[in-house]
């Protein structure tokens, strides 16, 4: 009985939270698309500063992670492919797997850790120090001024970061492939791009677009629903990373399944 009750309670509260996230999502869409038609625009500087934070300031860590994962993939791939005598296909392996899977997911996880948690911490602090309420009493809707700029920044900048990360990952593969495995530069580059089709890139970018929405919505939701002082801010920050990670992997599985079955 107690276990049933506990399960019931957890299901109910999880259901309510999911409902709340969707409500936040639809209100974000309202302020993004409908409100501007009624003359309520979102100040360009709010969006711009968020883009700088989410995108430009993430470049270094994204480059670092992508470069090394590309190099690791090259070494791991070479180990397997050399047994088949097909080492030069390392280039194709890296370019396709970076664009389709590893680039979007890895970079989304990095950005969830860096940007999503920062959003939760910032909005959470604003919530517990009455700043959100202050915005509201100044007739400034927090969705419009806080959520929408972060949402826009992430859905634009995450795919952009992903494109760059894909390229840097290929560069990492190139470094190992050419300088360590002894593949000639021309052949490496040719193999790299010959096997890559537009669909690989597009499905990857579609994924990172969805991941960007997830990171923004979860970060904002956790932040705006923070309760209980500094401790609560810490809890929201951690939760935003954990929940984003889970949802990114889940969405990745669903989207990959969709693309897979749609193309069969």
């Amino acid at each position: 009985m107690n276990i049933l009750q506990a399960i019931g309670r957890v299901t109910l509260s999880a259901g309510a939270a999911i409902w709340d996230v969707f409500a936040l999502f639809f209100r974000t869409l309202y302020w993004l698309f409908y409100a501007p038609l009624r003359g309520k625009f979102i100040g360009r500087h709010y969006i711009f500063s968020q883009m700088v934070f989410a995108g430009v300031q993430s470049l270094l860590i994204v480059f670092f992670v992508a470069l090394f994962i590309g190099m690791v993939l090259a070494m791991q791939g070479a180990y397997q492919l050399s047994q088949l005598g097909a080492v030069r296909f390392v280039a194709a392996l890296i370019s396709v797997s970076m664009c389709r899977e590893i680039g979007p997911v890895l970079i989304a996880l990095v950005v969830a850790g860096r940007v999503g948690s920062a959003i939760a911490a910032e909005l959470g602090t604003m919530k517990v120090t009455e700043q959100i309420e202050a915005l509201e009493t100044m007739a400034m809707n927090p969705i419009r001024y806080l959520v929408v700029p972060r949402f826009l920044a992430l859905i634009v900048m995450l795919p952009a970061l992903t494109i760059m990360g894909d390229l840097i990952g290929m560069l990492g593969g190139y470094i190992v492939g050419v300088y360590n495995l002894g593949i000639s530069p021309g052949l490496y580059i040719k193999t790299n791009f010959d096997f890559l089709v537009l669909k690989d890139v597009m499905t990857g970018l579609l994924k990172s677009f969805v991941f960007g929405m997830i990171i923004a919505m979860i970060g904002c939701y956790m932040g705006l629903n923070t309760k209980g002082g500094a401790e609560g801010v810490g809890r929201s920050t951690t939760m935003s990373v954990v929940v984003s990670f889970i949802l990114i992997i889940l969405a990745d599985a669903i989207l990959t399944g969709l693309f897979y079955f749609a193309s069969v």
Partner: peptide, 24 residues
């Protein structure tokens, strides 16, 4: 509604217990 409320909100000010200054 929200629009009516906004125009009323512009006619009063509020000083919060913690001042609630935007720290950014």
């Amino acid at each position: 509604n929200e629009d009516e409320m906004d125009s009323i909100k512009k006619r009063f000010g509020m000083l919060f217990q913690s001042a609630a200054l935007f720290d950014s």
